[in-house]
């Protein structure tokens, strides 16, 4: 019965220790916060820069593209806030520190997430939501009850899809210890992919990223539904509303891969 409060206290202690450690070096902390706030804006800034030299991207105007970029950014930052740390897992595996994680009487995934938490991630996510609100106010959206629900659900399901890719990607380190940046192709690559209308990508590349990995459901399809535009690529009209379903599927698949990966783990030793 006393089990639950103790677990929560353990996570609180992990989080508190991280916060204290990172605020020890004040100058570094301040610079870190400021620079990472600007980096979060970079995706949206690059859309602005590209539209300085072109009036449209694959038939999408500036405000339409900005809405897609805003949705993608909000989803990515929400995901990064929660599970972005999983990125460091390959270091845990390579150095053998993962042994210590497995030995503690806490669940593995939450430990990794809370053990390296940076408070600036909350700020980043908040900033991304502000950008999304600005993009929504600029875009030509006719609000209906269904679209109001969608605009809340879309960043959340997008974040779950990104989270699934992050978790599944991190498991490659269980099999290939020096897998290095391999997973980045799909995590950060996925972020870049979702910023733009999927029509700009060549056919097979689109088939892999947009439909097989589900990245079209992060921002492109919800964006179409919000704008009330049919897909210029001619996909069925119900797809733009399917993001939550895809998120559930992605999360289930990632959970399975993670479980297999952890069982497969053999310490690297040193």
């Amino acid at each position: 019965m006393a089990d639950r409060p103790t677990t929560a206290a353990a996570y609180r202690a992990l989080l508190g220790a991280q916060l204290r450690a990172q605020t020890q070096y004040r100058f570094s902390f301040a610079l870190d916060t400021a620079a990472s706030a600007l980096i979060t804006l970079l995706d949206v800034v690059s859309v602005l820069v590209l539209f300085r030299v072109t009036p449209a991207l694959a038939g999408f105007s500036f405000t339409d593209s900005l809405l897609i970029a805003g949705l993608a950014n909000a989803a990515f930052q929400l995901c990064d806030m929660c599970v972005g740390n999983i990125d460091t897992m390959r270091e845990y595996i390579r150095t053998g520190r993962f042994d210590a994680v497995l030995l503690r009487p806490l669940r593995v995934l939450p430990q990794l997430v809370f053990g390296d938490f940076s408070p600036r991630r909350i700020g980043r996510a908040a900033q991304a939501l502000v950008v999304l609100v600005v993009a929504l106010s600029l875009a030509d959206v006719t609000w209906t009850p269904a679209r109001t629900v969608l605009v809340v659900i879309a960043p959340l399901s997008g974040a779950v899809i990104f989270g699934a890719v992050f978790v599944a990607g991190s498991t490659t380190a269980f099999w290939f210890v020096e897998s290095g940046e391999f997973a980045n192709a799909f995590t950060y690559g996925g972020r870049d992919f979702t910023i733009y209308p999927v029509g700009i990508y060549p056919g097979w590349f689109r088939a892999v990223f947009a439909y097989s990995l589900g990245f079209a459901f992060v921002a492109y399809f919800p964006g179409l539904a919000l704008l009330g535009r049919p897909d210029p690529l001619g996909t069925p009209g119900f797809l733009p509303w399917c993001s939550p379903l895809v998120a559930v599927l992605a999360a289930t698949a990632a959970a399975l891969v993670w479980r297999v990966g952890v069982r497969h783990y053999r310490s690297t030793g040193s």
Binding site: Y25, F27, S28, F29, A30, L31, D32, T33, A35, I39
Partner: peptide
């Protein structure tokens, strides 16, 4: 000593 902030500025 802790150059996390400088690294982030360089990343930007």
């Amino acid at each position: 000593l802790d150059i996390r902030g400088v690294i982030m500025a360089w990343l930007l």
